[in-house]
Design a protein around this nucleic acid. Structure first.
Lengths: 260, 260
DNA sequence: AGGTACTGCATACGTCGTTCGCAGAACAGG
DNA sequence: CCTGTTCTGCGAACGACGTATGCAGTACCT
């Protein structure tokens, strides 16, 4: 008859100090999962694998974690703990946010599986909340509605992960050549060559080696542009640059498509 | 002895006109999967479920699809086919891109699972390529390096999906109250009240019902700001005065690009 | 006509997430 | 100190899933 918990793992106390002392703890379990994910990717993080890595029985983890998803939450929040806020407090909000972005990038590069794990989920663990707090602190002096700040941070995080994902993929291309990716590139060039997609063709056959800027400068440039565009004073930006008619959602998108 | 294909499903011919006529086709299979996903989410799309929905045997689909991931690719590209490009060609790149964004939003709202399916994967099917072609066409007259355009489109897509995901979650809150989400909110407010996160507290307790703008105007406003920031002339926005650590030499590969 | 190459399908294998029930260990109260 | 309660780890098992395999039939090609 003990059902009621169902709450987030972060509200559940780790220990319920009654019985014998637990052999493991959340942090150690998360660390074991992270080690597996770092080595062989997210799919390698199975309940059994983490258990044997810990020297535990196949189903022992369920004493600490209600579900595999909670294990992933633990892992995600633990790597969020690797973020340093030492470089913040510059006095310029843009510099502070860029510092946060570089820190995030570092964590993503150190734990590429985090890109997949956070693609669906939005992290809400203690360390993630600390991150959000610092991001808001960076924007504290900005004269913008709090709502706008939260939006900006959400978009900001999405852009950071998108940029870093591109970087991870490109970095992997140097060593391992995933089968599907090569097939994908083959298909794309083939489509471009077919002639029906002129803009795509010119975009793909553009100057490749030329004065290509580094990934780092691209990262900083794109983020700067996005953030400066995003965090303008609240009263402007509502009208298009072309003096186009104001917000008028075009006719509804495609209808439901259930059956053929 | 037949091993060599391994190529993308888009390069593989649907029919190899030798044997008997297939009972099903890729489009029908994709439609069946989409129907299941629309009704019960992505996890409901299992090989067996799609098979029985089609009146086929449990493993019959492997005659059409090499893996479950390919089935998802089929589904993704089919819903991309619902996008209309009728409202494009306004002559203003921003208007065209906003029209694309509204179309994407419509598809996302009609098929919320698409948000999860494309969170990891980057769609590369024929319809996705058509989408990319139109996006590039919208930017054709812009005096920016092709590389910058591709970047901008990638960021653009990420922002669209982020905004729409937030909208889907908010929309779901009206009818179904997912357990984990309530727990999440409970935890967040509890953390904010604890006192150690002042900025978070003020951001969460901000004006709630006030002159809150609609989801639609937020959508358009954020996108406009991001895009205008992103697509400035190439020579500005590249400079920044932040000494940052974590710099590594540029990655080697020239190939892989940021795509839709 | 006959061979060939494809079709749908039933069955089976291995793995995964998760549940259940039990033996033992620590704490609480007396 | 003893006893009962409450927790612990764990082995075994369940159901579902992705996928491989082998077989019988069918339609095209020569």
């Amino acid at each position: 008859m003990t059902e009621p918990p169902a709450r987030s793992i972060w509200l559940r106390p780790e220990r319920a100090g009654r019985g014998p002392a637990p052999t493991f703890d959340r942090d150690g379990i998360a660390a074991a999962g992270i080690a597996l994910a770092d080595a062989d990717g997210l799919p390698a993080v199975t309940m059994r694998a983490v258990a044997v890595a810990l020297g535990a029985g196949p189903a022992s983890l369920y004493r600490y974690v209600a579900t595999r998803d909670e294990l992933l939450e633990l892992m995600i929040d633990r790597v969020y703990g690797e973020i340093s806020y030492a470089e913040l407090g510059s006095g310029h909000w843009l510099d502070d946010l860029l510092a946060l972005a570089w820190q995030s990038r570092g964590v993503y590069l150190a734990h590429p599986w985090l890109l997949d794990a956070t693609a669906t989920r939005t992290p809400v663990g203690p360390h993630a909340v600390t991150y959000l707090e610092h991001a808001l602190a960076a924007l504290a002096d900005l004269d913008v509605r709090p709502r706008t700040k939260l939006e900006a941070i959400a978009i900001f995080n999405a852009v950071v992960s998108t940029l870093t994902r591109a970087e991870v993929i490109q970095r992997r291309a140097g060593q391992t050549i995933p089968q599907w990716q090569q097939a994908q590139a083959e298909y794309l060039t083939q489509v471009a060559m077919a002639g029906h997609h002129p803009h795509l063709a010119t975009a793909l056959t553009g100057q490749p080696p030329e004065a290509e800027d580094s990934s780092e400068s691209l990262f900083e440039r794109v983020l700067t542009r996005v953030l400066t565009g995003l965090l303008q004073p609240d009263d402007i930006g509502a009208t298009s640059v072309h003096g186009r008619a104001e917000a008028e959602p075009p006719a509804a998108g495609p209808g439901a498509s259930a059956a053929p």
